[in-house]
């Protein structure tokens, strides 16, 4: 797991936050959580809800894992983490089904699939197991936010180009704008995400390429 440079004296709230959001962003640095980033970003609204779901799940599971970190037996720690994560994911999924029915239909199975999102498990393993609870929550929120912002950008561009709308409101008038449906198809997601990562890596100074971890689901 790639780690951002840790300041002397251990991580602070600020360094943890910035690492998750930018320096070690889960999507464009670690290339994690790509499946859901591709699947739900057909519309901005879906992307936002998915982002909120992930922020909630990472923050809560990081908190729980961090509180229990001295108790969890090493041998079964992965199973315990998965159980904790799954619980929070199902809580969120049920909440959507009860209170935001339309949204839950649109997101389909992807909220449930947060359980398999590498970002959540990765943060529990790499951060929450070794740091105190308050910092772990900050780390969870920052990583969730790093994911959510990228999702929102992709969702906004795909919805805008693909339908001429944003959050369902017509932005580019149908009188002169012909939507390019390519961008609401799956290949459009790959291209939008690829271009975004290309752009960000062109802006962001590359430190050490060998620290890039491999792709994950």
């Amino acid at each position: 797991m790639a780690q951002a440079p840790v300041p002397i004296g251990g991580p602070t709230a600020k360094s943890t936050f910035l690492a998750g959001l930018w320096a070690n962003n889960p999507i464009f640095c670690q290339i994690l959580g790509i499946c859901s980033a591709l699947a739900v970003t057909t519309r901005l609204e879906n992307s936002l809800v998915m982002g909120v779901a992930l922020i909630f799940v990472i923050a809560m599971s990081n908190l729980a894992v961090s509180i229990l970190r001295h108790l969890i037996p090493r041998r079964i720690r992965m199973i315990v983490e998965v159980a904790i994560i799954a619980t929070f994911v199902i809580v969120f999924d049920q909440f959507l089904k009860g209170y935001y029915w339309e949204m839950s239909k649109q997101l389909g199975p992807y909220v449930g699939l947060i359980i398999t999102n590498c970002i959540v498990m990765g943060r529990a393993e790499a951060y929450a197991l070794h740091n105190k609870a308050s910092l772990s929550v900050v780390d969870g929120i920052a990583n969730g936010l790093g994911y959510a912002v990228i999702l929102a950008i992709i969702g906004a561009s795909r919805e805008l180009i693909g339908t001429g709308k944003l959050l369902g409101y017509e932005v580019l008038s149908g009188n002169w704008y012909v939507p390019n449906h390519f961008f609401i198809y799956p290949p459009g997601a790959f291209i939008a995400l690829g271009l975004l990562i290309w752009l960000i890596r062109a802006i962001k100074p590359q430190e050490d390429d060998s620290s890039q971890s491999g792709a994950g689901s």
Binding site: V178, N180, H181, F182, F183, Y185, P187
Partner: peptide, 8 residues
């Protein structure tokens, strides 16, 4: 391919 799918 992009315009064939995008502007079917």
């Amino acid at each position: 391919a992009i315009i064939a799918v995008g502007y079917a």
